[in-house]
């Protein structure tokens, strides 16, 4: 009854509100509040610095989005980030000459991890939540085993620059962090892959209904494997930026996988597949990061920040479920 009413008299304002991605709306509200509390965030420089810090989470969310769109989960992202940072310091050993081949090896490791995740899910039929949970444990153990439990070396300066370097005196924007350039390139690539290629449509089809997709001629297994590879490669990218931004530590990746999933969901992605957008994932991760920043600025006691995070998570998903039903 109410649904009919809404259809017959949809005020322009209501339609506009429905059209906005929840994530975008949440982000604008949160960022506006931050900027009121801390005016420097209103300046271009402040925003770019914010983006620089949020870049790893955005990249992780974009990678996770492919797996979610295909109907699965990747819980191994966080420990792959840890492996990337610890492994990078082990391989490069502080020597700038080693940086480029080190990065190559790290991407190869990522490729391997993604392939194993994908093959375990498609060939051994282990649900992705369990397959990647096992991978989480193993990778974390492997990273610590490799380094002996503590960081064993430094990342060279040119490696660090990828996450740390900020170009000064740039026209128009004033400053330009290198990681923001990488971020823009990565997001563009992800958006193109998901929204403008046959592969992207196949991912969404597989997530929506694998049997129907198969009947329609979609290579379901290969598509599944590929989404895990994409997710793993994005985790390596995020690891390189995080290691670059802040240096080596053993706890660097902890919990990032859940943040990435939460970011996708806040951005309107449907768990278990079928509906996903890169804009949403970006907006979702920006919202989440803005929330962390805001709670920091407000000086709320640490534990209550978790509570607020939980509330927002449920509210975002409940509201999008509600909008789905009414649409």
């Amino acid at each position: 009854m109410s649904a009919t009413a809404a259809h017959t008299a949809p005020s322009a304002a209501l339609r506009f509100v429905r059209g906005i991605n929840v994530g975008v709306a949440i982000f604008l509200v949160l960022y506006g509040t931050i900027a009121v509390l801390q005016p420097s965030y209103f300046e271009v420089e402040g925003f770019l610095n914010f983006l620089r810090r949020a870049a790893p989470l955005i990249i992780l969310a974009c990678g996770q989005l492919f797996v979610i769109a295909g109907g699965g989960f990747d819980l191994s992202m966080g420990s792959l980030v840890t492996l990337t940072v610890l492994g990078g310091s082990m391989l490069a050993g502080g020597n700038p000459e080693n940086t480029w081949w080190t990065i190559g090896v790290l991407y190869l490791i990522g490729l391997g991890v993604g392939l194993v995740n994908g093959l375990v899910v498609t060939l051994l039929k282990v649900p992705s939540i369990i397959a990647t949970l096992g991978m989480l444990l193993s990778l974390n153990g492997a990273a610590l085993m490799w380094s002996g439990g503590a960081p064993r070396g430094y990342l060279p300066e040119n490696f660090r620059a990828l996450g740390r370097l900020v170009y000064r005196e740039v026209p128009v924007t004033g400053i330009m962090p290198l990681s923001v350039i990488i971020l823009i390139g990565f997001v563009a690539l992800a958006a193109w892959l998901l929204h403008a290629t046959v592969f992207g449509r196949q991912v969404l089809a597989v997530g929506d209904n694998p049997r129907a997709a198969e009947l329609a001629g979609v290579p379901v297994g290969a598509t599944r494997v590929l989404v895990f590879v994409i997710s793993a490669l994005s985790a390596v990218t995020a690891g390189i930026l995080l290691g670059g931004f802040a240096g080596v530590s053993t706890a660097v990746g902890q919990g990032l996988e859940l943040q990435a999933i939460a970011a996708c969901v806040i951005g309107g992605a449907q768990l278990l597949g079928g509906r996903a957008s890169v804009t949403g994932a970006v907006a979702g991760s920006l919202s989440l990061f803005a929330l962390f920043t805001l709670l920091n600025l407000m000086g709320l006691p640490q534990p209550l920040r978790e509570t607020v995070q939980g509330l927002i998570l449920i509210a975002a998903v409940a509201s999008s479920a509600w909008r789905m039903r009414r649409a």
């Binding site: 640490q302 534990p303 209550l304 509570t307 998570l313 998903v317």
Partner: peptide, 23 residues
């Protein structure tokens, strides 16, 4: 009732509980 995916719903409730507790 709210049709929220169980992973997200219970992750959220878990965060809320832990936050109140640690506070």
């Amino acid at each position: 009732r709210l049709d929220v995916n169980p992973l997200i719903a219970t992750l959220g409730v878990g965060l809320i509980l832990q936050g109140l507790l640690s506070a």
